[in-house]
Design a protein around this nucleic acid. Structure first.
Lengths: 125, 125
DNA sequence: TTTACATTTGCAACAGTGTTGCAGTAAAGG
DNA sequence: CCTTTACTGCAACACTGTTGCAAATGTAAA
């Protein structure tokens, strides 16, 4: 995978962001540095490289966030919850929150998507 | 809320379906009985009436399913999991599966969206 | 049965998200 | 500096979901 300006800038954005970002949010924050399509394709690459993880927000929009645990020990833990604040709209990873559950026999679970919505600490004050 | 042909047929569809349905799936199964927009608006009404519950699938598409518990005791339990089979594409309610979790203080959780994906019993054989 | 009116519908048009093909551009190693 | 191949931009598209408005329809009352 090549290092391009677009890729570098998108990585920076994600690294410095404490919230998960959607492709369109990233595009906006890049102020026209690259095309909309490029954002999608760079994010796809970053996911393959294990730099970010992807999930679907409650509104159906894709969100990307840096992998906190993964980049250090190269093991992926994406079973954590995501929180979508209905007031400010921020979506954050709750790395420490992992749901416990038991599925009926014969169901083979490969991935989980666990998104909570409500009021975040910032907006609760 | 008035009873119209569209509403009646959509209720029938949902009642007889063992999987959650998206607006477009419903539209297809109605074979042109009503407009695409009407499907969206009827589903909105059915949700307000407490007949169905709505959730976002892992692919970001809306899904609707009849409320199993709600219509009997008029109390809504929508914390159950949904399962999206990656093979047949079916999305089903796992009414019995409720995730256990603890969020950090100051987070006020209003709704949860818990969707699992993998292989369903039908496709596992 | 007819009337009246609010609700529901269809249409057209739109906004937003995500994808694809293809031609041109640029990164990286030799 | 050259070559190769990955990457990018553009244009176009498919799909999902929404909105305004005029026409149609359900419902309850006259």
């Amino acid at each position: 995978m090549r290092n391009t300006i677009a890729k570098t800038e998108i990585q920076k954005l994600l690294n410095h962001s404490d919230v998960a970002l959607s492709p369109s949010e990233i595009e906006t924050q890049l102020h026209g540095l690259c095309n909309r399509v490029t954002v999608y394709r760079v994010l796809e690459r970053l996911e393959k490289e294990g730099f970010v993880h992807k999930f679907t927000n409650v509104d159906g929009v894709l969100k990307y966030a840096v992998c906190q645990d993964c980049d250090t020990n190269h093991i992926h833990h994406h079973n954590h919850a995501h929180f979508n604040c209905t007031k400010c709209g921020d979506v954050t990873c709750l790395e420490t929150v992992e749901p416990k559950f038991e599925v009926p026999v014969n169901y083979e679970v490969a991935e989980i998507n666990f998104t909570l919505s409500g009021i975040c600490p910032k907006c609760a004050k």
